[in-house]
């Protein structure tokens, strides 16, 4: 039983006053540091801003963290849907800020799902990647996930990421194994090439100040 399907899809653009900025990159790339610094910078410039993140601190985000820390096991594909469920929760929060004209800086967003989804499916085939992307774009349209006004991909080498994660010496989350990090890095590179208009690449190996500076310069 085959059903032919044909239609056009598009991402949903931010219709609100507030600006929606996303920081992406693999673990250890400096996302959290930079997202928080950016909020501080914007606040200094009298631009009301908030820091948000995925996974959230809501019930869905908490379940994700439990799985990430290895306390609970879940099939990788199912896990991606948990992220999407959490994103739907996050979306309500984001929109409520943007509506009020507040700038939102998000530590990770749906781009992460595309990248991590590819790793989970262990796919490097162009075809499969396209399919995942299409699936995600349909889902994002279906669920009205907003496309960020700008996305910064903090590019660091796998070695640098590993070095930073080791330094933090926290419990290793399941994604933070070296080969996985390498695949995630490849995934981000692929995505950044695919969406040149949407994603700006920032050299994440520079000093904390320089990276913030590059982000700020790029926003203006």
């Amino acid at each position: 039983m085959n059903y032919n399907v044909s239609f056009n899809t598009d991402f949903r653009r931010n219709p609100y006053k507030g600006r929606f900025i996303v920081i992406e990159g693999m673990d250890g790339s400096g996302k959290t540091t930079q997202a928080k610094r950016l909020v501080e910078y914007l606040e200094e410039k009298k631009i009301e801003s908030v820091y948000t993140k995925e996974p959230t601190d809501e019930i869905t985000g908490k379940l994700i963290r439990k799985i990430l820390s290895g306390k609970l096991a879940l099939a990788p594909v199912a896990f991606q849907y948990l992220f999407a469920a959490d994103r739907a929760v996050h979306q309500v929060e984001i929109s409520s800020y943007l509506e009020k004209g507040i700038t939102v800086v998000s530590d990770r967003y749906f781009w992460s799902s595309a990248v991590y989804g590819m790793v989970d499916r262990e796919t490097s085939k162009e075809n499969d990647r396209e399919r995942i992307l299409v699936a995600l774009s349909i889902l994002s349209m279906y669920h009205r996930f907003l496309l960020p006004d700008c996305t910064f991909y903090l590019k660091v080498s796998t070695q640098e990421a590993v070095r930073r994660i080791d330094k933090k010496a926290e419990e290793l989350e399941i994604y933070e194994e070296k080969e996985k990090l390498e695949k995630i890095r490849e995934g981000y590179e692929w995505l950044a090439k695919k969406f040149t208009k949407e994603i700006a690449i920032i050299d994440g190996e520079k000093s904390v100040e320089e990276v913030t500076h590059a982000i700020v310069a790029s926003i203006k």
Partner: peptide
């Protein structure tokens, strides 16, 4: 960023 999508389910 418009995608035309066509496939068989």
């Amino acid at each position: 960023m418009r995608y035309h999508i066509e496939f068989d389910i």
